[in-house]
Design a protein around this nucleic acid. Structure first.
Lengths: 151, 151
DNA sequence: CTATGTGCAAAGCGTTTGCAGTTAG
DNA sequence: CTAACTGCAAACGCTTTGCACATAG
């Protein structure tokens, strides 16, 4: 995952600025976590970031990495890909379909769409490997939760 | 999640047949787990299926539900939505993009595509709630893993 | 009859939390 | 100086596993 030096620096700057502007202190540990996660596009997990940071800050704890990545995610500066903290959910409908996922209550609804059925595989996907399935995930706030907000 | 009686029965039949044809015994417990998961499109989690089954088989254990759902998923009869078996992974690239996920090694690669950028939200999605983001997940086997298979 | 499946209990893993000491601003 | 942050260790929730008993075929 080659990531240009400039791009990485720019991210570090943005992350630092955003953290400060939200009242978070820019500690030594945080800065190194930020550097680590900003320097790659390989979607590292927490332990991977931890090991990277430890090279430069041997006393850093795993908890701090968890907390910092959590903070960055809350601010929308990084995204979580793949399972966060949820129990597995099963779908007995194995025909091709897609999902709407409510970020508030966890509701998962099925989506059918002719436009999506007709999707062609982008070259950037087939270059990476053999694509066996495609799922589109729409995330947002469901009707019911939006209703609750309004009151 | 209204699911027609016929559809549910058809699923139970298929699941039972597939289990047998793969050499699995069709036990009382398994049959009820199959019935439970086949009777809804609400994407239940393991505990939810467990509670449903327990109404009819009070002695069933949570482990059995885990094992049966695992077996069904291995056979491709049900799908797991929302990742379980994985540590959270973080992505510092918050520009709109999509992912290729290797089911063998867990590699996550970024996908850019003009066609995907132009996607319109299907009505079936906007009906469920306010869509805040869209992510397309291509899953399959990456180049490297496919190479390993060939040897 | 025998290989499979079950229930139980204990362990595993990623993650979160309470607390006392540390530190940025 | 003080509120915020850190590291530690313990707890947590979901899931898996080892084992003796039960059971489908």
């Amino acid at each position: 995952m080659p990531l240009s030096q400039e791009e990485a620096c720019e991210r570090v700057d943005t992350f630092s600025r955003e953290l400060r502007s939200h009242g978070f202190r820019l500690t030594h540990q945080r800065l190194e976590v930020v550097r680590e996660v900003a320097s790659t596009d390989s979607h590292p997990d927490v332990d991977c970031v931890f090991r990277g940071v430890r090279h430069r800050v041997p006393t850093v704890s795993l908890d701090t990495v968890y907390r910092t990545l959590g903070t960055l995610a809350d601010l929308g500066l990084v995204h979580r890909v793949s399972g966060p903290t949820a129990a597995a959910r099963y779908d007995a409908n194995t025909t091709r379909h897609h999902h709407f996922i409510c970020t508030r209550c966890g509701l998962i609804g099925d989506i059918q769409s002719n436009e999506l059925e007709g999707l062609r595989l982008p070259a950037s996907a087939t270059e990476l490997g053999d694509v066996e399935s495609v799922e589109v995930r729409f995330t947002g706030v469901c009707r019911t939760c939006a209703e609750l907000d309004r009151t």
